[in-house]
Simulated scan of single mutants.
Amino acid sequence: MPANRPDSATGVFAQCPSGKILIGGGFNYTPENANIRVISSIPDVNLNQWRVSATNPGTVTGSLNAHAVCVTGS
């Protein structure tokens, strides 16, 4: 994911592989002292991606990552 520069907003997503169904997700950001504020961390409407949007009102550049938890569909 591109760096989330100070005083900016960004969005990222993690997608399930073909044939898998999304059952959850989350995010992490680095470094821990970045002032990243998560606005949303939600599944998409098709249940195959986890989407995260955030802002960085601070002065430290950070990196935001989305994670998807996927299982084999039936």
Rank of each mutant, 00 (worst) to 15 (best):
S8C: 09
A9E: 10
V60L: 08
N65W: 00
N35V: 10
G73H: 04
S41T: 00
D7T: 09
A3C: 11
C16R: 08
H67M: 11
V12I: 03
N48Y: 11
I21T: 07
N28S: 15
I36L: 12
G19M: 04
L47P: 05
A68P: 08
N35Q: 14
V45Q: 15
T61N: 07
P31Y: 11
S53N: 06
Q15C: 03
S40I: 11
G19C: 01
V38T: 08
V69K: 02
T72R: 11
V60Q: 07
T59Q: 10
A54Y: 07
L22G: 04
Q15R: 00
V52I: 12
S53M: 03
I39W: 08
L47G: 15
N48F: 08
G11N: 12
V45D: 15
A34D: 00
S40N: 14
A3R: 11
W50Y: 05
A34G: 03
N48V: 01
I36K: 08
T61I: 10
A34L: 00
N46E: 04
I21E: 06
T59A: 11
N33P: 02
V60A: 08
G26A: 04
S18P: 09
S53L: 02
N33I: 12
Q49H: 13
T59M: 05
G58P: 04
C16P: 01
L64M: 02
L22S: 02
A66I: 10
R37C: 05
P57S: 14
Q15P: 00
C16I: 02
V71H: 01
P17C: 01
F13D: 02
S18D: 11
H67S: 12
G62T: 07
T61Q: 08
V12R: 01
N35L: 13
G58N: 04
G73N: 03
N65V: 12
R51L: 15
G58S: 09
Q15F: 00
T59F: 07
S41R: 00
G73V: 03
P2L: 00
N35D: 15
S41W: 02
A54F: 04
Q15H: 03
L47S: 15
P17I: 02
A9D: 06
V38Q: 13
S8A: 10
F13P: 03
A68Y: 11
V45N: 15
G19V: 00
T10S: 14
L47T: 12
Y29V: 07
R51N: 15
G19H: 03
T10Q: 13
L47M: 15
F13C: 00
G11C: 11
D7M: 10
S8D: 14
A66Q: 06
D44W: 03
V71F: 02
A14K: 04
K20C: 10
V52W: 00
N46P: 00
S40F: 13
Y29G: 13
R37E: 13
S8V: 07
P31R: 12
N33T: 13
G73S: 10
C70R: 06
L64H: 06
N33C: 13
Y29N: 14
S74H: 11
D7A: 14
I21A: 12
I21P: 00
P17V: 02
T72G: 06
V52H: 09
G19I: 06
P6V: 05
S63Y: 09
I39E: 13
N33L: 13
L22W: 01
N35P: 07
S8G: 08
N4T: 13
S8T: 15
F27R: 10
M1Y: 13
S40T: 13
I36H: 06
G24W: 06
V38R: 11
A54E: 11
L64D: 06
A9T: 09
